[in-house]
Amino acid sequence: MKKVVLAFDSFKGCISAQEACEACAQGVREAWQNAVVVQVPLSDGGEGLVECVRRMLPTRSVAVEVHGPLMDMVEAEYAISADGKTAYMEMAAASGLTLVPPERRNPLKATTYGVGEMIADAVKRGCREIVMGIGGSATCDGGRGMVEALKDCRCLDMDCQVIAACDVNNPLFGKNGAAYVFAPQKGATPEQVETLDGRLRAFAKATEHAGRATPELAFSSGAGAAGGLGYALLAYLNANLHSGIDIMLDIVGFDAAIKDADLVITGEGKSDEQTLMGKVPYGVLKRCRKANIPVWLLSGMIDDATGRLAESFGLVRSINEGDTRPLSVLMQPNVAKQNLKESVSFLVANYHELSMN
């Protein structure tokens, strides 16, 4: 009897990680009716972290009113573990880019104040560990807003361990820093980028003068993540920054899930060179390599001009291969789920032949 583990990320703008796993499971069972199928919907630790945790672990949801990126009040949701000790949250719930309409986006004004309020809320509820995804920010304040909120809430020097899911290695400031690399994506003009970079430098100086950091900390890997929030988490909360997908795989007990598996199937909306830089399929691949388990990559789109994906995975295939319909049709959830199911069913039915190649 075959054991197949399905470990998908969402196909952004199309289907969720859970929907991808369910469609894939239908395909596997069409080919191998008696297969043991284990579904592990995943996130890379950015947006989607809380949803992933909710699906895999017993938690309760919490909603709290906080200040959004432009200081409008928003309702931010996060999850707390069954024992009440760990909070799982995303900075984007309080300070995310999606909370700001395109015409109002302005990283000169956007703040992480609400992130601090969300953390303070969790601490006051008794949480002693916070796992935070720090992707999708609207901000470039270096985490200054978060620090101000924690001060206002009298939670800055709290007894709480913070683990941040971070998949960028940019420093706080400079040409590879938060302002120059990420602020343009948040609506900053070239002149505003220079202003923001200057603010980040000034914040680092103030932090150093306060005895919270050494000058080297601003150049730590991940300090520039989420508009510099990574820096404030390191300096003021002594946080640990880790690969988001590794955090998620540990949370869901992935190593135990793949024990004795014959095959692992993973995928995402589009796979390319970026996939091998900390995305869900690569995190899955690394764990499976250690256990000597073959991994197939099935994604909506495949861009493998360099051939590195084909070299890394046992099989690489687009679920839309041979489907000539327009992208707008292929992106429809029902179409994507059907194509994924049919692709998996065909490939699994030919598993032995593919394995020999």
Rank of each mutant, 00 (worst) to 15 (best):
L309D: 02
S95M: 07
F254R: 13
A188T: 08
V53F: 00
M56T: 11
V74H: 01
P281Y: 01
V100L: 05
F8C: 04
S271K: 00
K2V: 13
P171V: 05
Q192F: 09
L42K: 00
D260K: 13
E103L: 10
I134L: 09
V329C: 10
A82L: 14
S43Q: 06
L156Y: 01
G227R: 01
V5F: 03
Q274M: 13
D157M: 06
E19P: 10
A63Q: 14
T189C: 10
K175Q: 14
V50S: 02
K337G: 02
R55M: 15
Q274W: 08
Y282P: 05
A336R: 01
L237Y: 00
E268L: 04
A31V: 05
E90W: 06
A218F: 05
I119V: 13
Q338Y: 12
N106T: 06
D197R: 00
F219Q: 15
L315R: 14
P333Q: 11
T266Y: 04
K270C: 13
K151Q: 14
T306E: 12
C24E: 15
G314P: 09
L241W: 08
G244I: 01
C21T: 07
E321I: 14
R105N: 11
G224D: 01
E77W: 10
A178R: 00
M56P: 01
A164S: 09
A79F: 10
